[in-house]
Design a protein around this nucleic acid. Structure first.
Length: 601
RNA sequence: CGGGGCGUGGCGCAGCCUGGUUAGCGCGACUGCUUUGGGAGCAGUAGGACGGAGGUUCAAAUCCUCUCGCCCCGACCA
């Protein structure tokens, strides 16, 4: 990592001794860079695209082992421990209890919950030497429910909230962006158990509050949005999102009320479209007009006057024709929720043609033999353009109820920029976010399928009501870097910084200077201000560059110049502000700055 | 899984199209001297046989086939 420092041996010994000083948790309070494993890179690594990913590699936080699998180097582990401590404090303060469940789980449990099929190839399956089936846990609902059904009998044992920090494995189709979407990652997962609905709601609110507290404490700009429950299941859920342009999730916000939702979930009704006026059905020749925009141009009508008919197929079910105004997109999550059962997907063109007998673009609801569902807007249509089921012809003036039968109307359209807010009607805006936390109301999905029941006060037996709550630990740290950096490197918030102070002696060969530095180093550690000492025999420029890259909140420079005045120089990483502190008070002043910063976050 | 790109000292890359000196450059590492408040200078040293396998050829980093891995886009996804 570095060059040894030709210092007086006594001073060297003292510094080395100081790096062995630990806090109550057993963590070293200070390290010296000459012997600390923090390999920094001058150039961007070829493998990374995202800023946070590049910086985490360059600053020596992580290294890749294989696709989606990373080494966490010492600096990274320090940040992880900090975040874990913050999470623990918030959860413990609400009565949650930490435990640890195994990463490897019997496949049998997944069969019981029915998720071994549902979870698909993302679930890593393996066999032990006796040929028994196991999985590597992508999440722990099954295991924790198994504990509960064996140990909990009565409402008197509830409520209960259990949590753990555990390494999860999800065999992602395409891991990417470093820790943002890895295959193996650390997750804090919590599970709540209640006897009744009221208690379950309270547990959910408690966790929601805890999460707000946690993400506020780590200094992230975040938003809470309504979310789709997806494969975890349950009735409703909220996601905690760090706002960042590079985020993989699209979020919908209302500018004037508090409505916020993941686009997957965002409700949409009353958007502008052209219902037409009532008129008889008329067949027109529309040669080769397969796509909505061209057809609209050809007929000289707005796209919203066209009723788009799309054929979907469902695993283990019948094909369904889905209708939506021509200028809108289907939200696949809403569609899936409208069609309980197997996975729903758009039929391939050939597949659709085999089912309907017409090429794509001319599929029609008129006289259709398959079930039809439609977006709610279609109920208002008085005359729409639809296919005829005959190549190169469309109908004008088609009306639901009269010309075709819709079995159900649902909110199916994808909400987007400018659409009316479902609460107040104001225009919606779109932002990108990184999901760092997710809280779910599970209800009795797992307790029922796996038989976790409690006897209630009235003597009846009832399935326990569950909730589950996750925080992506590595992802939260990556999101922090993504949100807080500049051209020179990371800008750590105090709460997550691996060390608080970077201490840079500019003349490490100067014995007298190093003695002052050693004294300051010792004082900082005595005050539990974590400090990384750059004792390397390098030029100042390189030390400054590395300090900026590592991004510790407070950089303290000690040089013959500053010492001549009995001072050290402080530069705050976030603001760039430079001040000079008297050497003999520096340690306590730095401690005060740190504590003030942590309080304000 | 579909589309695109890339694998050459520790890192970043050139060379490949149009086969042919001893595979090159920058950074890094090591040694010495000088330098010391924003990634120092000079001199010198070490380190790769070109992801792997097979093939074509007098000759392969370079051409062909297969294969493995990585990255990006999409599909997909808590």
């Amino acid at each position: 990592m570095a060059k040894d420092t030709p210092q007086p041996p006594a001073c060297l010994e003292e510094l080395t001794r100081l790096t062995r000083v630990v806090n109550k948790a057993g963590e070293p309070l200070g390290q010296k860079l000459s012997s600390y494993f923090a390999p920094t890179l001058k150039e961007d690594p070829a493998e990374a695209e995202l800023v946070s990913h590049k910086l985490m590699i360059r600053a020596g936080l992580i290294r890749k082992v294989a696709g989606g699998l990373y080494d966490y180097l010492p600096l990274m582990i320090r940040s992880i421990r900090k975040l874990e401590a913050i999470i623990r404090a918030s959860l413990n303060a609400r009565g949650a209890q930490e435990l640890l469940m195994p990463a490897v789980q019997p496949a049998e449990l997944w069969r019981e919950s029915g998720r071994d099929q549902k979870y698909g190839p993302e679930l890593l399956r393996l066999k032990d030497r006796h040929n028994r089936d196991f999985v590597i846990g992508p999440t722990h609902e099954e295991v924790v429910t198994d504990i509960i059904r064996r140990e909990i009998r009565s409402f008197r044992d509830l409520p209960l909230n259990l949590y753990q920090f555990q390494t999860k494995f999800r065999d992602e189709i395409r891991p990417r962006f470093g820790l943002m979407r890895g295959r193996e990652f650390i997750m804090k997962d919590a599970y709540s158990f209640d006897a009744d609905e009221e208690g379950a709601s309270q547990s959910y609110r408690d966790m929601y509050e805890a999460y707000e507290e946690i993400f506020r404490a780590v200094g992230l700009k975040f938003a809470v949005v309504e979310a789709d429950s997806g494969a975890i299941g349950g009735s409703h859920s909220h996601e905690f999102m760090v706002l960042a342009d590079s985020g993989e999730d699209t979020l919908i916000f209302c500018d004037s009320c508090a409505y916020a939702a993941n686009q997957e979930k965002a409700e949409l009704r009353g958007y502008a479209f052209d219902p037409g006026t009532e008129r008889p059905l008329e067949k027109v020749h529309t040669p080769d007009q397969k796509h909505v925009p061209e057809l609209a141009a050809f007929l000289k009508i707005p796209a919203s006057a066209i009723v788009k008919s799309m054929l979907f197929v469902q695993e283990g079910g019948d094909p369904v024709l889905v209708l939506i105004p021509g200028h809108r997109e289907i939200n696949p999550h809403k569609l899936q929720n409208a069609l309980p059962g197997g996975a729903v997907r758009l039929a391939e063109p050939a597949e659709a043609e085999a089912i309907t007998g017409v090429p794509m673009g001319f599929v029609t609801p008129v006289g259709a033999k398959v079930k039809i569902i439609a977006d709610a807007a279609i109920a208002q249509t008085l005359s729409g353009v639809v296919g005829t089921g005959e190549k190169d012809y469309h109908y004008l003036g088609a009306a639901p109820g009269r010309d075709f039968t819709v079995s159900a109307y649902h909110d199916l359209a994808l909400a987007t920029e400018g659409d009316p807010c479902p609460r107040c009607g104001s225009p919606l805006i779109v932002k990108k976010g990184i999901e760092v936390g997710h809280v779910f109301k599970l209800g009795t999905k797992y307790s029922e399928s796996m038989g976790a029941k409690a006897t209630l006060r009235d003597g009846t037996e009832s399935p326990i009501i569950m909730g589950c709550y996750g925080i992506g630990v590595g992802r939260t740290i990556a999101a922090s870097v993504e949100q807080s950096h500049d051209a020179d490197g990371i800008i750590w918030p105090f709460a997550l910084a691996p060390f608080t102070v970077a201490l840079l002696p500019l003349q490490p060969r100067d014995g007298a200077l190093m003695e002052s530095v050693a004294k300051l180093f010792r004082e900082l550690l005595e005050l539990e201000v974590e400090c990384l000492l750059d004792d390397r025999d390098e030029r100042p420029g390189l030390k400054f560059k590395d300090a900026d890259l590592l991004g510790l909140p407070l950089r303290v420079t000690v040089s013959t110049k500053t010492l001549a005045k009995g001072e050290v120089e402080l530069k705050e990483r976030a603001s760039g502000q430079v001040t000079f502190l008297p050497l003999d008070k520096a340690a306590s002043l730095l401690r005060d700055i740190k504590e003030k910063a942590l309080k304000n976050q």
